[in-house]
């Protein structure tokens, strides 16, 4: 018994590495390649920008000009972010709740599976962008139409991944749940949901990507605020420094949201490591 306990404690003592070795490893692990690529792109951008620079309005504003525009636009971009998130969060959140709930139910109830899966096969591949003009025309406010389209884009990947997660619950977990006398609801909550989390997170990542695409596309159509609207607005005025700044800023926001989701996934799936 004591030998087993020692075996259990061993990894933590091994993991606590001493200073010198850790520092050397950190240095060896430092990945300079992405920074090199970024620097090369920046230089290429500067050179092309300079070459194209005519009088007045540059088509490709050089980095310094864009940075300046970005700095000047930060308050407006901040307000745009808030406006965009007021669409994104409810649309994505609703898709998440409904997609996971329906996906897990459909994946564990044969009758619901028979009802949902053929329908999903036809409905899911429709590019949600084609709904945008219709949603804007039919729904009373732009906010509602955009939220609906974001919901639609995020719902299908989350639903399909949750359902396939529920379908692939390992037999031993199912057996154990039955032997322990779990009710169907207990089985869903304590076994199917956690067991499907790896799939659900894949669906969430795909859905989040779609959400940002649909959000910005919808904003190009009819918004009076938001990230997509910012880019569209300054494109209309041929203010390319602000436009490029808006593109870069949107990229950064998307990246931040994706990283946050990835951190969440890493935390929730600790038992897979």
């Amino acid at each position: 018994m004591s030998a087993e306990q020692k075996a259990l404690e061993l990894p933590s003592t091994v993991r606590g590495d001493t200073g010198g070795g850790a520092r050397r490893r950190l240095f060896a692990d430092f990945a300079w390649e992405p920074w090199a690529l970024a620097a090369a792109l920046l230089v290429a951008w500067q050179i092309t920008g300079n070459a194209l620079a005519g009088e007045g309005n540059p088509l490709l504003p050089p980095p310094a000009v864009v940075l300046r525009a970005l700095w000047d636009s930060l308050p407006e971009l901040g307000r745009g972010t808030v406006s965009s998130f007021l669409i994104l969060v409810p649309g994505y959140g609703f898709a998440l709740v409904l997609g996971v709930a329906l996906g897990l139910l459909a994946g564990t109830t044969p009758r619901l599976a028979r009802a949902f899966f053929p329908f999903a096969k036809v409905a899911a591949p429709i590019p949600p962008t084609v709904f945008i003009p219709y949603a804007i025309a039919v729904l009373p406010t732009f906010h509602l139409s955009a939220t609906f389209v974001v919901f639609l884009g995020a719902f299908w990947p989350i639903f399909q991944n949750a359902a396939s997660g529920a379908l692939s619950v390992e037999g031993r977990h199912r057996d154990n749940a039955r032997v322990l006398g779990f009710s169907h609801f207990e089985y869903l909550r304590k076994v199917v949901f956690p067991a499907s989390l790896p799939h659900i997170f894949s669906g969430m990542a795909v859905g989040l990507g779609f959400s940002f695409i649909l959000l910005t596309v919808a904003e190009l159509f009819g918004a009076n605020a938001g990230l997509g609207r910012f880019v569209q607005y300054y494109a209309d005025f041929a203010d390319y420094p602000r436009m490029v700044a808006g593109i870069l800023y949107t990229g950064a926001v998307t990246w931040a949201a994706m990283s946050l989701l990835d951190k969440l996934r890493h935390r929730a799936l600790f038992w897979l490591r």
Binding site: R172, V179, P194
Partner: peptide, 18 residues
């Protein structure tokens, strides 16, 4: 069907990993 009057231990220690 399964019932809690019959406890089962499987070969592969099937604890819920989460």
């Amino acid at each position: 069907g399964p019932g809690t009057d019959r406890a089962v231990v499987f070969q592969h220690y099937a604890l819920f990993p989460w």
